[in-house]
C-alpha cells in the first residue's frame, strides 16, 4: 500500500459537512469562477524516490512549477519518467521526498482532505458492484458517512444527476459498469471526479485504454466540459496531438528522474474543436514536440 500509517484518519463529520456546504455554495458563484481563487498549483522543488539503499529509484527529480487557476496543463514524457508519480504528489496520494506542494496556498494534504482535488486514472476504476449512479455518488457518500451508510441528501443527488447529464450519461444511471463501453466508463470516471467540484482535476492518461476514435471523441468531450467548469486540469498523456489540442500549456519531462525539460504555451485560439487541428500552429507545435519527445527519450 502506498499510504504510511495514519492516512485514513477520519475527520469529524462536522468538518466534512461544513466543507460540503462550502462547496455547494461555490455553486452559486458564476461558473467561470471570476474573483474566486480556484486551483492555483505551486510546487517548490519536489522530488520523489521510491525504496531506499541500493534499490532506491529516483522517480521525480526536482520540479518547481506554477499553474494558474483554471489552466489546462498537459505533461508528456517518455515512459517511466515519473509523470504518474508527479501527479500523485500533486494530489497527496504520495508524499514528496523533498519539497512541498501547495494548492491555493494550502498544503496538498489539506486540499485532499477537503476533497478539493479530483483524480481520474488510466483505467476508469469504477466499482463493479455499484451502479453508474452509485459510483458517481461515492464521493458524497464518503464525505457524509463517518464509516456508516447513510442517505445522501437530495441536493447532492441532484448534483450527481447534473454531473451524469454533463457527461451525457443521464440514461445510464442504473446500469452496472460492465454494461458500458470503454468510452462511457471513462465518462463515468470523469463525472465522479467532477461531482465534488474540485479546484484541481488530475488526470493520468485517462483515455489510454480507448481506441483512437473514442479517444478523440473523449478529448473533445473533456474540452467542452472543461470550458464550462474551468477547474484547473493537469493532464498526463503520451499522445502529443491530444495534449496540444486540449492544453494551454504543455510540459515535457526528461527521462527518470523526471525534471521539466520544456514548458511551452499553446496559443491556439479558443474555443477549440476538431477544426483546431487544421490551424497552421497546431502542426508546427506537434512537430516540434514530437521531435523533443523523442530526444528526451534518448539522452
Amino acid at each position: 500500500m502506498v499510504s504510511p500509517r495514519g492516512h485514513y484518519r477520519e475527520e469529524s463529520p462536522q468538518v466534512a459537512n461544513i466543507e460540503l456546504i462550502r462547496q455547494s455554495r461555490d455553486r452559486s458563484v458564476p461558473e467561470t469562477g471570476q474573483g474566486l481563487q480556484k486551483g492555483a498549483i505551486h510546487t517548490d522543488s519536489v522530488s520523489k524516490s521510491y525504496g531506499g539503499g541500493s534499490g532506491r529509484i529516483d522517480a521525480v527529480g526536482n520540479i518547481s512549477i506554477d499553474v494558474a487557476p483554471g489552466d489546462f496543463v498537459s505533461i508528456v514524457g517518455p515512459s517511466g519518467c515519473g509523470k504518474t508519480t508527479f501527479l500523485k504528489l500533486l494530489g497527496d496520494i504520495l508524499e514528496p521526498s523533498t519539497g512541498h506542494v501547495e494548492i491555493d496556498g494550502r498544503p496538498a494534504r489539506a486540499m485532499r482532505k477537503g476533497r478539493r482535488v479530483g483524480f481520474v486514472f488510466q483505467n476508469a476504476v469504477l466499482f463493479p458492484w455499484l451502479t453508474v449512479r452509485e459510483n458517481v455518488t461515492l464521493p458524497f457518500q464518503i464525505a457524509r458517512s463517518g464509516g456508516r451508510f447513510r442517505r445522501v441528501p437530495n441536493e447532492f443527488l441532484e448534483r450527481v444527476d447534473r454531473a451524469l447529464t454533463t457527461v451525457g450519461l443521464e440514461d445510464f444511471g442504473h446500469r452496472l459498469p460492465r454494461e458500458l463501453s470503454g468510452g462511457m466508463q471513462s465518462r463515468v470516471a470523469l463525472a465522479r471526479a467532477l461531482v465534488p467540484e474540485p479546484a484541481v482535476l488530475l488526470m493520468d492518461e485517462p483515455f489510454a485504454a480507448l481506441d483512437e476514435l473514442t479517444r478523440t471523441e473523449m478529448a473533445l468531450h473533456l474540452l467542452s466540459v472543461w470550458e464550462r467548469v474551468r477547474t484547473t486540469v493537469v493532464f498526463v498523456t503520451h499522445h502529443i496531438q491530444e495534449a496540444v489540442l486540449l492544453s494551454n500549456r504543455v510540459v515535457v519531462m526528461s527521462r527518470r528522474p523526471g525534471i521539466i525539460r520544456r514548458d511551452i504555451t499553446i496559443d491556439l485560439p479558443r474555443p477549440r474543436s476538431l477544426e483546431s487541428r487544421r490551424h497552421p500552429l497546431f502542426g508546427e507545435i506537434v512537430e516540434d514536440l514530437t521531435l523533443d519527445f523523442h530526444l528526451s527519450g534518448r539522452d
Binding site: 488510466q122 476504476v125 466499482f127 464509516g147
Partner: peptide, 26 residues
C-alpha cells in the same frame, strides 16, 4: 483489492473503515 481503487479512496479522503466496507469487503 485493486491498488488504484485504494488510491481513489485516498484521494476522496476515505476513512479506514470506509475503505474496508466499500472496497476490500466487496
Amino acid at each position: 483489492a485493486d491498488t488504484t481503487m485504494l488510491e481513489l479512496m485516498r484521494s476522496l479522503n476515505a476513512s479506514r473503515t470506509q475503505v474496508f466496507q466499500r472496497v476490500k469487503l466487496p
